[in-house]
């Protein structure tokens, strides 16, 4: 299984990623997921989310998940891009692409990967509020 993980402070260029899509023989399904920053957090209007990662551990945990995916489903390729730093409202913070023989395993693997990411990959987010002086419920600081 081909795997590619990118943790980046740069905007996610979907077109560029799609142009590089691997499509080995026998593959019939591609599932792409885009996670986008919503305009509210805990009921308050925000202008962005600021993402922070324990990068070394995040990379390790993602690759553990990729290992497990490979055991569970006949996937040809998984590519993940996760933004770090400030991501404005309506911008994507996460892009996931799964290439598999059939849609069933592609959808299942994509759902599973994102669920597990939210459980074990050490990435955190902090709301950046629109109103000057507004504070999140719990203040955080980037490492």
């Amino acid at each position: 299984m081909r795997r590619e993980l990118t943790l980046t402070s740069e905007p996610i260029d979907e077109a560029a990623w799609l142009a590089q899509r691997p499509m080995p023989a026998g593959m019939g399904a591609v599932v792409c997921f885009l996670g986008v920053v919503r305009d509210t957090e805990a009921g308050a209007a925000i202008r962005a989310l600021e993402y922070e990662a324990f990068r070394k551990m995040a990379e390790h945990q993602f690759h553990r998940l990729f290992d497990e995916m490979e055991k569970r489903w006949p996937i040809a390729s998984v590519r993940v891009v996760h933004r770090l730093g400030v991501v404005n409202v309506s911008e994507p913070s996460l892009w996931v692409e799964i290439v598999a023989p059939h849609r069933g395993e592609a959808f299942a693997a994509c759902q599973w990967l994102i669920d597990e990411m939210k459980r074990v990959v050490p990435i955190w987010k902090r709301p950046v509020f629109q109103r000057a002086g507004a504070r999140p419920r719990r203040s955080r600081r980037s490492a």
């Binding site: 551990m57 939210k118 990435i123 955190w124 987010k125």
Partner: peptide
């Protein structure tokens, strides 16, 4: 290091331990 460990994990000299709240990626 880069792996979660249970509370009964026996530490060794030089271990790099991390404490953090629930993760929130995505």
């Amino acid at each position: 290091g880069v792996d979660y460990q249970p509370r009964d994990y026996v530490l060794r000299d030089g271990d790099e331990v991390s404490l953090f709240p629930p993760v929130q990626g995505g």
